[in-house]
Computed example of a mutant assay.
Amino acid sequence: MLIKPDWPVPSTVKSIYTTRQGGMSKAPFHSFNLATHVGDLLENVVANRQQLFDQACLPSEPIWLDQQHTDIAIQLDQSNLNAQVSHSLPPPIADASWTQNPGIVSVVMTADCLPILITNQAGTIVSAVHAGWKGLAKGIVRKTIQSFPTDIQQCPEQLIAWIGPAISMQHFEVGQDVYDTFIDQDSANSSYFHAKPRDETPSKPLPKKYLADLPGLVKKELNDLGVSHVYGGDLCSFALSEDFFSYRRSGQTGRMACLIWIEPTTRNG
């Protein structure tokens, strides 16, 4: 099943996100898994990707990334598309991509991490970002925007962002190391962590655990970067088990996709 994000973007900017429903994959990847790296049968993933292409009326094959929780954002153009279609090169290692080319589809896959779509009010650039806590801490959101052309970087108030289904604060437990990482970067980040009560005694101290608000951290970072038009962030991949894959909930599981592109003015054929 395909869903359109609810955000005020130009009519030429198209975006969708997928759910876990309606595909060919069997348990534990049931059923619309789009990832080739999780242990699913390749033929099922290929069939699901073809179904995505057909149902979404995509202008070209999405340019899939080899996501490794990096801080790498790449620009996409026709050469990336040619390499993917011909299988002449492996998927690029990156966790974000952007393009100004109509008909080039930027995509990220997630199963609890944050999928973030970005465009501008003129509809001249589109970007998809994958941000788990590691990528977020490394600055993937900031570095993606900083990789945009200078004229777009200099007008962050013109950017529009949407945050897709991700794990919510209620279900995302992290340790002291994650808390320290974000607090060392900005003490104001402490408001996005809630310490969990622990049943401990003086003779049996327990390591601290926190509930972390990843969507809140991303919204704050976008706002700090000058991006005030931020939407979404209210769908929990962990809680909505019928709709979304969740690595934290299930371990071995599939991946959803968030896609964005600039619609070509004309299409071949």
Rank of each mutant, 00 (worst) to 15 (best):
I140R: 04
S191C: 14
P207R: 15
T150L: 14
I183N: 08
G233W: 09
A212P: 07
P215G: 01
D224P: 04
C155L: 15
I183K: 13
Q154L: 15
N189L: 12
S191D: 11
S241R: 04
V230N: 03
F244S: 02
L136F: 05
R248P: 02
D184Y: 12
F182D: 07
G164L: 02
S228C: 11
L217E: 03
K134D: 11
R249D: 01
I152K: 13
P165N: 04
R198Q: 11
I167W: 05
E157M: 03
N223I: 12
D224K: 12
Q153H: 09
A161F: 03
R255Q: 12
K134W: 11
K209R: 15
I167P: 00
A161P: 02
V178P: 01
K204Y: 04
R142K: 14
S168I: 08
K134S: 13
E157V: 01
G226L: 14
K219A: 07
L136A: 04
Y192H: 13
G164S: 04
G175R: 06
W162Q: 06
G232Y: 00
Q252I: 15
P149L: 12
L217P: 00
V230D: 03
Q252K: 15
D199F: 13
V218W: 11
N189R: 14
D213V: 14
E221V: 10
K196Y: 10
G175Y: 06
L206H: 15
V230H: 05
W162A: 09
K219H: 10
V178T: 05
N189C: 14
P202D: 05
V141D: 00
L225E: 07
E242Q: 14
K196L: 14
K220D: 13
G216K: 02
W162M: 08
A161W: 05
L217H: 06
L159I: 03
F148E: 00
L211K: 07
G164M: 02
F148I: 00
R255F: 05
T201Q: 09
S168Q: 10
D180C: 11
S147A: 11
F238Q: 01
H194C: 06
I163V: 06
I167C: 08
K209F: 06
D199L: 15
A161R: 04
M169T: 05
S250L: 07
G139F: 10
D186E: 12
H194G: 02
K196H: 09
I167M: 07
P215V: 02
V230C: 08
A212T: 10
K208G: 08
Q252D: 12
F182A: 07
D151F: 09
V178R: 07
M169H: 04
P202W: 12
I160W: 03
M256P: 01
A166H: 00
G164H: 01
G175L: 12
F193N: 01
Y247M: 10
M169W: 01
R248H: 06
F245A: 00
G135E: 08
S241H: 03
P165G: 04
E173Y: 10
P149A: 12
A239C: 13
W133V: 11
E242I: 09
I152G: 06
S241Y: 06
P202N: 04
